[in-house]
Design a protein around this nucleic acid. Structure first.
Length: 463
RNA sequence: UCCUCGGUAGCUCAAUGGUAGAGCAUUCGGCUGUUAACCGAAGGGUUGCUGGUUCGAGUCCAGCCCGGGGAGCCA
């Protein structure tokens, strides 16, 4: 007898109709009467459940109808057309094998739970509709990222997770050490003696693979990283996590315009891929999580992202007549309220804001000819905020070194980075995409903790 | 870290300073095509913790703990 995945049934049930098949999975719900019952079975391969019909001719009928939700069973029988309106077919089972019954204290009920509660049972929440949909989309989106870049001949580079220095001042870092914290070795000056540590040097978890990946762009031309990133910031918001994934493409012989085009194309590709490969899940999000989701994604697919300079944004905000809590002034970074006003009130679509003042951006960004701004871009989207941040890099050796000295950065730590500007430098550019923020945007989920299987945030490292 | 809202049964939520409740889940019973099935019954509570005000506190006050949202920082 053929073991069939429920996904196969939904995609091609004609091939199985009136045939004997075997399925296996977890019970989502059982509706029973005196002499017959319906079981909704989910086998993990598909968002929808298979309805199984049983009657009391089944040897273990009375035992089966008493099973609790999430019990694991194997069912054998004939796939038949269903008289019920809500499903085209169902399994008329003549044998149910109980693999593992779920005990009666199983915490998930058939009605809805709050996301807050589900976070406390992160090991069980993938069995719910919402999280099943979220994490299938997350999987598809990861694959789509690779597919997008591989189709364009980008080389995937594994940049290090453990690093020796604060790569770009991107944030507070997690320290990596094997030193005995109860007996920390000190040098003559009383500082921690890292020569006795594992690497004979202080070490941290990466906050970005950008500097390393730039060196590979100088060899392979177009490259990308896609991996975990760590920030030890004490930020407690629905958009921040201590461990998250980032996609960082880098292109040689490319400028700001090129990476804006690339990231716009990438976002659209991601959306299209998920719509094509998880239509049931996307439908579910649209119906239960975010009513305007599909219309919004459709709008994104069919429009060009707006591009506007920082200076124009400041002008626009100042002339808007809108009351902002924080003053709008050239030289200050845009506040969340400003970004929201732009994306949600004015443009209602993703926008690139470009050419920020150099003093509010990172040292490696290319200085524009006005000497005041750098060739940077942020992609802002309604509801989520900044989803992509990128720039054309400062490829001029003297210019880069001068900027590093201005910021009192230890030149000797960056000798290898500076070398790229000595040996065949060229204009190049790249960006970072916050993968979880992209998932939030794709699904309509509003908390980053609900798009990471086991989220790590300040004070939380359960599971 | 700051601001703000909240914490009542396993879950989702009610309860004017005066006997702590419902739906779902659980257990038991009923029901011949259900669709978060339905009908009946039962069990289930130190109302986050500590202290205070009061004849009387789930409700008012203070401190603490935990959670949500907003801000900062960023992706």
């Amino acid at each position: 007898m053929e073991q069939v995945a429920i996904k196969q049934l939904f995609h091609n049930h004609e091939a199985y109709i009136n045939k004997e098949i075997r399925v296996s999975g977890w019970v989502r719900t059982i509706r029973d009467s005196k002499s017959f019952a319906f079981i909704e079975l989910n086998d993990g391969t598909f968002f929808k459940n298979l309805q199984i019909v049983i009657d009391d001719s089944l040897a273990n009928f009375s035992e089966v109808v008493k099973l609790n939700i999430s019990s694991a069973i194997i069912a054998e029988g004939k796939l038949v057309e269903s008289p019920g309106a809500k499903q085209p077919f169902e399994l008329k089972a003549d044998k149910i094998i109980i693999e593992g019954a779920a005990s009666s204290d199983y915490p998930l009920q058939k009605k809805r739970h709050s996301f807050e509660y589900l976070r406390t049972i992160a090991h069980l929440r993938p069995r719910t509709n919402t999280f099943s949909a979220v994490f299938r989309v997350r999987s598809l989106a990861s694959f789509a990222i690779h597919k997008f870049f591989q189709e364009r001949n980008f080389v995937y580079v594994h940049t290090p997770i453990v690093t020796s220095s604060d790569a770009e001042g991107a944030g507070e870092m997690f320290r990596v050490t094997t030193l005995d914290l109860d007996r920390i070795p000190r040098d003559a000056d009383g500082n921690v003696d890292f020569t006795q540590d594992f690497f004979k040097h202080d070490a941290n978890l990466t906050v970005s693979g950008q500097l390393q990946v730039e060196t590979y762009a100088m060899a392979f031309r177009n490259v990308y990283t896609f991996g975990p990133t760590f920030r030890a910031e004490n930020s407690n918001t629905p958009r921040h996590a201590a461990e998250f994934w980032m996609v960082e493409p880098e292109m040689a012989f490319a400028d700001l315009e090129d990476i804006m085009n690339l990231s716009e194309e990438m976002i659209k590709y991601l959306i299209q891929y998920c719509l094509d490969h998880a239509p049931e899940e996307m439908e579910f999000f649209n119906k239960f999580i975010d009513k305007g989701l599909l219309a919004r994604l459709d709008n994104v697919l069919n429009s060009d992202f707006k591009r506007i300079t920082y200076t124009e944004v400041i002008d626009l905000l100042q002339k808007s007549g809108e009351k902002f809590q924080y003053p709008v002034e050239w030289g200050h970074d845009l506040q969340t309220e400003h970004e929201r006003y732009l994306t949600e009130k004015v443009f209602k679509q993703p926008i690139f804001v470009t050419n920020y003042p150099k003093d509010i951006k990172a040292f490696y960004m290319r200085l524009n000819y006005d000497q005041k701004t750098v060739a940077a871009m942020d992609l802002l989207v309604p509801g989520v905020g900044e989803i992509v941040g990128g720039s054309q890099r400062e490829e001029r050796y003297d210019q880069l070194l001068a900027r590093m000295k201005e910021l009192n950065m230890p030149e000797e730590d960056y000798w290898w980075y500076l070398d790229t500007r000595k040996y065949g430098t060229n204009k190049h550019a790249g960006y970072g995409l916050g993968f979880e923020r992209a998932i939030m945007y794709l699904t309509g989920m509003t908390n980053i903790r609900d798009v990471i299987p086991f989220p790590r945030t300040v004070g939380h490292i359960d599971f």
